[in-house]
Write a protein that binds this DNA or RNA. Structure first.
Lengths: 377, 377
DNA sequence: CTGTTAGCGCATTCAT
DNA sequence: ATGAATGCGCTAACAG
């Protein structure tokens, strides 16, 4: 009823502004501004001292929003992540953060959680906050929001995936080389059948490239026989029903090669002994090549449920991506240089922001094969 | 040399402003502003139509920075995450995002990557961007930046951990109940020895609470014998040397109970068969209780390296947190209601931002025991 | 119903 | 070396 207005944030002790500091230091705002922007050489030692004192006394912190509004740039960049639950993304993020730190940028991290709609909303939101650029791990941005190298919109660099119709910088794994690397490893290990398992391609270019490289390599090295040794399976992780269907198909194929399951499918009373790996028995003759970690996990879980703890004696597993549980499960992986991917992406973006006019650049980084028990004899 | 200035972002096609729209629509800025803020009822249908047209034609998007500057609130909240590599954090994030979406807030996600220095920097940065509140998964914030319920600083709510000397809302797992739940489970399963393994407590209150509850429960249920059955091991994941020392201690204790390692410690030629689980042999007699997922992973990796693939026949593992590989490894876990934690945190914060003046509130959520092969007979 | 005016906090001419 | 004035894009009183 008395002093403060109705629903207003109450004890919100308004922060000191540049004007407050100026008054406190007995000078004009200009000098404060100069001080803040490092033009200290143009200030008398005395004034400078008073300013510092005033700032300390008032615990003054310049308002970035206002600065941004004035200068026209706010040092904000957007980082649009398709799926933070994928360890890959988190690692890339590390790189992004490191680079931002080094360049004085502040990344706004947006998590689309695999929802195209979210992605759209965030992109719009970022625009609204006037970020100076975006680094995008896209889901299905067919947007005009992004800048096609030199065009309108806001500067963008792509990570891992290309987006159709958008000519922009992109940095990611050398998918072709990586998939070939994995395939050759499997071939050399003498597996009779190799299944490449991948999520639906949709807009995700990297998935397509991986499949293509797999098939190309199988063909080249397997000769005509390559056809029968190599198979591709699409696993739509977003749809439980689809997953079930696809896995059933896989099971049938495995049964044909390895014989039936040891544990019954449903409930084998007590789950029985855990186990992962080759080792005692005869080595597995069929290998699964997962296009990324989520797929690998899905496969591993299924195989364990289906064949019991010792599923790895039935089938080998290789995955692109090297999640922390890979070592534990003993599966072979192809590790991406995730941190560097993030770092380079920010570098590219920064150059664009500073006005670089080069054509679209690509930065394809090599993956590293990490052989574990699953695929070695 | 010619038209545009030197290093300025070149083809940066300045975005339309509210003034542009006003001119385009042949009206004043006020009407545009009204339209933007939903005061459409106060606009003639004609004007309204012209405005809509103008906005569409210019692809106008209001500048949030400017709005924020004017109104004094920018709908930004900070989300300070200690460690994104911990799946727990990512899940909490989901909840935070959902809540923010529902409340029209935009979370600035900051990742401290377990570095106290980073945390400090981010907190300062958030302040600088004038976020309306912060939700903090703290490392070591002994800061005055945060608002001690009703005090100065910026409204904050804590997640998972309390910070010393700061009276603020907090939401997280009911650590006492969870640790007791796990301990009792282990006790009921008849393990002869139970080791609670936890990272150094330092500022992290939740770790302390978990240890305390473990010890309390052991004492209460084991009677005098509880002393010899329960042990606590501190594992400093940040220091490789420390980790090694602690694990060695654990190994000695295990050897005393279970006999020596099957595989030699160093390199057992080929890693040998993979395997996780109880099952065939006699059930394990000692159980490890990991205070969180990172610890659990470290333990599992070590045990596998030390005892070979069948390490789970030697020792059982139970962990607070339920990372996605838990099912694969077959370890028992206590799953936290992560999403809800995030959601509630934002709700609390929102209430504070709107001026709620209640004393510090706690929201302790229950964990769910998920029994897997590792600890069941 | 609609337009005018005055700042939000700051960086920048431009004088002094 | 320093300060006064102007305006970034927008909202919120005030008039009409």
């Amino acid at each position: 009823m008395s002093t403060t207005s109705a629903r207003t944030p109450p004890a919100a002790p308004r922060r000191a502004t540049i004007t407050d500091v100026a008054r406190e230091a007995g000078t004009g705002k200009t000098s404060i501004s100069r001080y803040l922007n490092g033009e200290i050489s143009a200030l008398s030692p005395d004034l400078r001292a008073r300013i510092e004192a005033a700032i300390a006394r008032l615990d003054y912190q310049p308002n970035q929003m206002a600065r941004g509004l004035k200068r026209g740039r706010n040092r904000l960049i957007g980082m649009l992540v398709a799926d933070l639950a994928n360890p890959y993304s988190v690692e890339v993020l590390q790189g992004v953060e490191a680079a931002c730190h080094a360049l004085g940028l502040m990344p706004l991290i947006c998590h689309a959680a695999n929802e195209v709609e979210m992605e759209r909303r965030f992109l719009q939101l970022l625009t609204t906050y006037r970020v100076e650029g975006v680094i995008v791990n896209a889901l299905g941005v067919r947007e005009e929001t992004l800048r096609p190298v030199g065009g309108g919109g806001i500067p963008a660099v792509l990570v891992d995936r290309r987006v159709e119709g958008l000519v922009a910088d992109m940095v990611g794994l050398d998918n072709g080389a990586a998939a070939e690397l994995g395939t050759r490893h499997l071939l050399e290990q003498g597996f009779e059948q190799i299944w490449f398992v991948v999520q639906p391609f949709e807009q995700v270019s990297s998935r397509q490239l991986r499949v293509q490289a797999f098939e190309r390599t199988m063909h080249a090295h397997g000769g005509a026989a390559g056809r029968s040794r190599g198979h591709t399976l699409v696993l739509n992780l977003a749809e439980a029903a689809d997953v079930e269907r696809s896995l059933a198909e896989l099971d049938r194929a495995l049964a044909a090669v390895c014989g039936g399951a040891r544990d019954t499918l449903a409930g084998s009373g007590r789950p029985g002994a855990e186990g992962t790996g080759t080792g005692t028995g005869t080595p597995a003759r069929v290998a699964l090549f997962a296009a990324n970690a989520p797929v690998a996990l899905c496969l591993a879980l299924h195989l364990k449920a289906r064949y019991g703890a010792h599923w790895q004696t039935r089938v080998a597993l290789l995955s692109i991506d090297d999640p922390d549980w890979a070592e534990l499960a003993g599966i072979t992986t192809i590790r991406q240089p995730t941190c560097e991917i993030g770092y380079r992406a920010v570098q590219f973006l920064h150059e664009r922001i500073e006005g670089a006019q080069t054509g679209a650049r690509d930065c394809l980084l090599a993956g590293e094969l990490i052989v574990r028990a699953s695929t070695s004899r």
